[in-house]
Design a protein around this nucleic acid. Structure first.
Lengths: 356, 356
DNA sequence: GTTGGCAGTCCGCCAGACAGAGTGCCAGGC
DNA sequence: GCCTGGCACTCTGTCTGGCGGACTGCCAAC
């Protein structure tokens, strides 16, 4: 690949756009004759051949083998997406399906995320993914220890992100309802409004010690705070892997396997999208979709894939991410419109409905 | 397939067992010469040929085409599993890996289920699934409305299955902490110990009305009870679909697609296993693994698959199910041992750790 | 700068040949 | 009566060579 790309005159740009468009639709390498027959270019195939040879030298096209048509390179797709492609809007039908879906969507965050990936994979015909907003920076709001019976209690922690942890504890000795209430009140007044990650174990222990509660209860409180802060298991969902089987590029079992492995390894999948969450939310305008193509994904297994990502807002609870993964040969315009539209509806749904 | 199967004498039984064993290991149709060469049968290949012809007539073996070796039929596998196969126990290595896994497993039910499927798919080299115990028959234990601020409250319902619902509500007018406490106490004394599904909306409304709380709060209470009772989204997890790609029987993309679709359609997957949960938990000894082979699964897409299921106990909270899905040509003995061992460890883990 | 023409290249497909694996059957032996 | 070696037959998978099709690159002419 060239460091510096060839400048494109108007005709080259049109030819490149047409090659990409045709290849996306047919999955077959595009030849000069096909081009002149199907599109009104006003010149002969010989001229197209000359132009295509220059586009190949310039790094926009590649030839799978001598005497085959041309296929776009990463740079070819990139140029197409950034400068040549006509932006698309949602079709009426897609809009309706998205609206219908969210009208009866769940009120539980994990379920909504899950349903959204199903919707998006169905509409896009590709693999769809979603991650929930991270809870790194949530503020502590409330802790409550609730007396259930002499030997069992419920502890619950609420943050600005909603209920962050709850758990039933069993005690080896009887506990007193008043003690639990006093401890709850003390913790609330001490930590109210603080950011979760700043609330340390020693400080929690100090409060327990002040009130003279048993070691067992002190341990329980520390545990439930730790759980509320935990961010190691990000909420992530994926759906539609079987859609990829329809794409000729995945008829090769090795490639398919590599993709499936990535999808099941939630960690890799998360990193793939989360990169975008940190890097891009600062640099691009709010809510803009973003496309990464082939090697831009920095993973060999995904060298023939592209990913469309788009952030969604969850009120003041942070930013999540929707993503569509498919072959590089994907209908970028349509998928960008779909992802954006779905992200918008998802955000609205999350704000309208009280999500726990 | 024959209604009545041929009686098997000792030699036929041994030959059938050997054919199944060999086919499971090689994935190639088994011929008479292979059999005499690899196993000490004491007779010539011609004799084996005669026996195999009878086994085929009896419905235990089939021939993919003339002049190919034999392959077991559903009945052949069934006989092997029920009567011919030597039971296996967990290897030291597998035991250790299961133990290690649960030593550091999560305390959250959904996560444990998820991690268990990953473990089991990794060990078995097949697709693993798990469903959590249903919460149909849980008993109501406690409800608490917690004052967070003048305009926000937290409602939480605890059942014998743990925390069944929690949700933050925002009010249009200020609410009073004492009102919330009084309502909580009234609900607790009214419903304590009852089975969740017997607690109706009208009865809940009656309590709210008695205490004269606002309609808004009344609605909230009804909503949170409804959520706690909801069983429509069964907790189900699956992992290891990519393992199936290694099996030659899934190199056919259509078959693979059908399987992947089933895995993503959680409903079908759930039905597949839940059948077993209701039908079998009554009829088979507690905790016994169960195998369903090919057409026994009553799904055309799964005609070439088998499923091993094994229930696990979650204390007094009901029974869940682990399952392994793979080609009929699966190492039944090993998978049964793995599933049983994992189910046992999972049950122990769920009882040891306080799961929320 | 553009074009038609032409030689050259590579792929995919098909038919035919062939080796390999396995069966069924039969006649002879224990 | 059961077992066995031998043999003819069948079917598969693979390999090969040939052929048509689809392109390209280049050149000479416009």
């Amino acid at each position: 690949m060239n460091d510096k790309l060839l400048e494109l005159d108007k005709r080259k740009a049109f030819i490149l756009a047409t090659v990409v468009y045709e290849y996306i639709n047919t999955a077959e390498p595009v030849g000069s004759v096909t081009l002149t027959q199907k599109y009104n270019l006003g010149v002969s195939s010989a001229t197209i051949r000359n132009e295509m040879a220059e586009l190949e030298a310039g790094g926009y096209l590649v030839q799978p083998h001598t005497s085959a048509g041309r296929v776009p390179s990463d740079a070819g797709y990139r140029t197409y997406v950034d400068r040549l492609m006509a932006p698309e809007t949602l079709t009426k039908d897609d809009s309706r399906r998205i609206r219908d879906q969210f009208r009866e969507a769940s009120t539980e965050l994990a379920d909504v995320i899950d349903q959204t990936t199903r919707l998006l994979s169905g509409l896009s015909g590709n693999l769809a993914m979603a991650i929930a907003p991270s809870r790194d920076t949530h503020a502590f709001k409330h802790v409550q220890l609730i007396w259930l019976s002499a030997r069992t209690s419920l502890a619950i922690v609420v943050t600005s992100g909603g209920v962050a942890a709850q758990r039933v504890f069993e005690w080896s000795t009887d506990v007193n309802a008043d003690d639990l209430t006093r401890l709850s009140n003390a913790l609330n007044s001490r930590f109210g409004g603080r950011v979760m990650e700043d609330i340390g174990a020693t400080e929690i222990d100090a409060v327990s010690a002040e009130l003279g509660v048993s070691a067992e209860i002190g341990d329980a409180v520390r545990t439930v705070f730790a759980t509320a802060r935990a961010t190691d298991e990000p909420e992530i969902a994926a759906a539609g892997a079987q859609n990829l089987l329809d794409q000729p590029e995945f008829h090769d079992l090795r490639k398919l396997r590599a993709i499936l492995r990535i999808v099941e390894e939630q960690r890799t999948l998360y990193d793939l999208i989360a990169d975008e969450l940190t890097a891009e939310s600062a640099s691009t305008p709010d809510g803009a979709p973003h496309v990464r193509i082939g090697h831009e994904l920095r993973a060999d297994e995904l060298a023939e894939c592209s990913v469309v990502t788009v952030p969604y807002r969850f009120g003041d609870r942070g930013v999540g991410m929707l993503a569509i993964l498919g072959p590089r040969r994907m209908p970028y315009g349509r998928l960008i419109a779909l992802a954006s539209g779905t992200a918008r509806s998802l955000g609205e749904h999350l704000n309208d409905v009280e999500i726990r």
